[in-house]
């Protein structure tokens, strides 16, 4: 299945690899790494102080949000569920939950 998917991606982008294996910029976005995770964060928006640390610390860069409105969220297509945001949140406003597969 994964292999077939990759073949489709290859065809769709008409990659010319006549001149070696050169990749298009940012093309990794086609790889939805959310399938990696066994846990998923929940941003509770109860005690958030708008410190931005969850954005800084996210290894994938999937967390986004506004300091002013103190609303943060994440892109669940890519979040690998490492739990760093929950561990490092200074006010424990992020919690991890097990993903049922």
């Amino acid at each position: 299945m994964l292999l077939r998917l990759r073949t489709i991606i290859l065809k769709e982008r008409k990659l010319d690899f006549k001149l070696g294996i050169i990749a298009r910029p940012g093309s990794a976005l086609s790889n939805k790494t959310g399938s990696f995770r066994s846990e998923i964060p929940v941003f509770k928006h109860e005690k958030c102080t708008g410190c931005d640390l969850c954005i800084y610390y996210c290894p994938e860069g999937v967390v986004f949000g506004d300091k002013k409105t103190k609303t943060y969220n994440f892109d669940d297509d890519y979040c690998k569920g490492c739990g760093i945001c929950a561990e490092e949140c200074p006010v424990d406003d992020i919690e991890m939950f097990l993903v049922e597969k």
Binding site: G26, A28, L29, S30, N31, K32, T33, F36, R37, I55, Y57, C58, P59, E60, G61, V62, V63, F64, G65, D66, N73, D75, Y78, K80, G81, C82, G83, I84
Partner: peptide
Amino acid sequence: ILTKEDTHKQLFTMGHTGCSGCAQSMAVK
């Protein structure tokens, strides 16, 4: 990085196959 679209425009994008919790990918970002 206010919106989901902003996260997709990073110079080092998500979608890589680094381990969950990889500090190297955090540093590169």
